[in-house]
């Protein structure tokens, strides 16, 4: 196990390096940040001044080398727009995104898993059909459209929930989060549900598909024949088997929840990472975009590793590659 983790760690460093190279050269192909920064009324030498100050007059490989040496000492560069370290800006925004993603994940699993298993156990029942209908709907509605609809229904028509922003935060167990205040939860409700909806449907479908498949297998028939109760079959035989694909997907999905919360965050003006990076893309704030992408890649590498380990624990048939031969 240790050898496996070590090896994956080394691979991850290589991946991060390759990624930084790709991202850096790709982002340098798009637009010119100076156009977005310098006020058009400025003196003609202002553009050159800014370009010089930000090192944009250097060839790309020189810029990359600077970035790389900086990165090795933990400095991913300063934001062009805010003039502050990219990492600091991201660290400021990260808690907001994290709490949004955690809430969304909790919502997705607590709703999706039981409904999916239920639908899988009674595939021909009316309830199952209704649940699957809902899941189809959940998958089919574009997130942004649903977000806007939610605002109209819950904020404008009913006036129950605030439209946007993050609510009050409170400190609990040393963690500052808006999850610990009523106002904060009110603000969280819509964006978290909005972000979760697709995942609910996904978990539901995976759980149902898995349940269907497992329940049709011989060992379940044996278990039934042995007279085990349904509850015990579900807990001891069904769950471990369907959890594998669900864990994989949920694991990766947690990454996507964080990485792809951009749309939800921009609709609900949620002051998280996604909004920071969308603005950075729009304004071509390259250091932020690069730092963010590398952060996302690192996050995924870690998540994948964790998923693989859990995989191995849940299903002994899948051995970790590092242990092979």
């Amino acid at each position: 196990m240790f050898a496996f983790v070590l090896r994956r760690g080394m691979q991850s460093v290589v991946v991060l390096f390759v990624m930084s190279l790709i991202v850096f050269s790709m982002i340098n192909l798009v637009g010119d940040p100076v156009d977005m920064l310098v006020n058009p009324e400025s003196l003609p030498d202002e553009i050159e001044r800014v370009r010089r100050d930000f090192g944009l007059d250097q060839p790309v490989y020189v810029q990359y080398w600077k970035f790389l040496t900086g990165a090795l000492s933990g400095d991913l560069g300063n934001s062009f727009v805010f003039g502050r370290p990219a990492l600091t800006l991201m660290a400021e925004r990260f808690p907001a995104t994290l709490e949004l993603a955690i809430c969304a994940l909790i919502i997705a699993v607590t709703i999706g898993l039981p409904l999916g298993v239920y639908a899988g156990l009674r595939p021909d029942g009316l309830g199952a059909r209704f649940i699957m209908g809902l899941s189809v709907l959940g998958i089919s509605i574009p997130t942004f459209w649903l977000g806007l609809m939610m605002i109209i229904v819950f904020s404008v028509i009913l006036g129950w929930l605030p439209v946007s922003g993050r609510g009050e935060t409170a400190v609990f167990l040393g963690i500052e989060s808006s999850m610990f205040t009523l106002d904060g939860l009110k603000h969280l409700a819509m964006p978290a549900t909005n972000l979760a909806l697709f995942k609910i449907a996904m978990v539901m479908r995976l759980a149902r598909a898995g349940t269907n498949e497992v329940m049709a297998q011989d060992f379940i028939r044996f278990a039934r024949a042995k007279g085990l109760s349904s509850r015990r079959i579900v807990r001891a035989h069904l769950m471990p088997n369907i959890l594998i694909p669900i864990v994989t997907v949920v694991g990766i999905e947690f990454g996507t929840l964080i990485a792809f919360a951009t749309v939800t965050e921009s609709i609900f003006a949620w002051p998280g990472l996604g909004k920071l990076v969308i603005d950075a893309i729009v304004n071509l704030d390259r250091p932020i975009v690069v730092a963010y992408l590398l952060f996302v890649v690192a996050l995924f590498l870690v998540l994948n590793l964790v998923v693989d380990i859990i995989y191995a624990v849940l299903d002994p048939r899948v051995r970790l590659q590092g242990d092979e031969e």
Binding site: I252, G255, F260, V277, I278, L293, V296, L299, F300, L301
Partner: peptide, 13 residues
């Protein structure tokens, strides 16, 4: 690993 890299690219970017 290539798959990992790809999966970590936000679609929008």
């Amino acid at each position: 690993r290539v798959v990992d890299i790809q999966l970590s690219f936000p679609a929008i970017l």
